[in-house]
Amino acid sequence: MTSRVMLISPAISAALREARFDDNCPLDASGLRLARAAAHVLPSVSRVWVSPTARCRETAQALGLDAGSASGPAGLDAGRWRGSTLTEVAEKEPEALAQWLADPESAPHGGESVRALCDRVARWLDDTAAQVTGRSVVVAEPEVVRAATVRALGAPESAFWRIDVPPLTATELSGRAGRWNVRVGWQLGPAQEE
Results as ranks from 00 to 15, higher is better:
L188Q: 00
L32Y: 10
E58H: 09
V150L: 07
E95H: 09
L42D: 08
A37R: 10
R47W: 00
G178Q: 06
L153G: 10
W100P: 05
G83C: 03
P190W: 00
F21Q: 01
T59F: 03
V144F: 00
E105R: 11
W100R: 10
P190G: 15
R162C: 11
D28R: 01
K92Q: 14
A54Q: 11
G178W: 06
D28L: 07
T133H: 13
L173Q: 03
L86E: 06
A38C: 04
A116G: 13
K92W: 11
R135E: 13
D23F: 13
A15T: 08
L42K: 11
T171P: 03
P94T: 09
W180C: 02
A90E: 09
T85Q: 04
D77E: 05
G72C: 06
R162E: 09
V5L: 15
G68I: 05
L32G: 05
C118V: 15
P190Q: 13
A90W: 04
A39V: 02
K92H: 12
P104W: 01
A29S: 12
T171V: 09
L101I: 14
T59Q: 10
G154Q: 10
A96M: 13
P52R: 06
A140G: 01
G175A: 09
T149Y: 03
E193W: 04
A152H: 01
L97Y: 03
W161H: 15
P190H: 03
V138E: 06
L65D: 00
R20H: 05
P52C: 07
E172N: 01
A38T: 02
A39S: 15
S113W: 03
A19M: 14
A78M: 08
N181W: 01
R36P: 10
V5I: 15
S174A: 14
D126I: 04
E157R: 00
E143H: 07
T133C: 09
V182K: 10
R55D: 02
A14I: 11
P52S: 08
A14S: 14
P43E: 08
H109L: 08
Q99Y: 02
E193L: 14
R120S: 06
A37T: 03
T171G: 01
S51Q: 00
V138W: 08
D164F: 09
W49S: 05
E58Y: 05
S106E: 13
A170D: 01
R36W: 01
G175C: 09
W81K: 00
V165T: 11
C25Q: 14
E93Q: 13
V41S: 15
L173Y: 03
P52Y: 09
R20W: 05
E18K: 11
A170S: 08
T149Q: 06
G83H: 02
V137C: 02
I8L: 12
E193D: 10
P26L: 08
N24P: 06
P108D: 11
G111V: 00
D77W: 05
G189S: 05
V5R: 02
G134M: 12
A74Q: 07
P190N: 08
W124A: 12
R146M: 04
W124P: 00
L153F: 13
V144E: 01
E95R: 10
I8H: 01
C25I: 08
W100L: 11
A107K: 01
P10Q: 05
S44M: 08
T87N: 10
L125C: 07
A96V: 05
L101H: 07
P167C: 11
S9H: 04
E105M: 10
A90M: 09
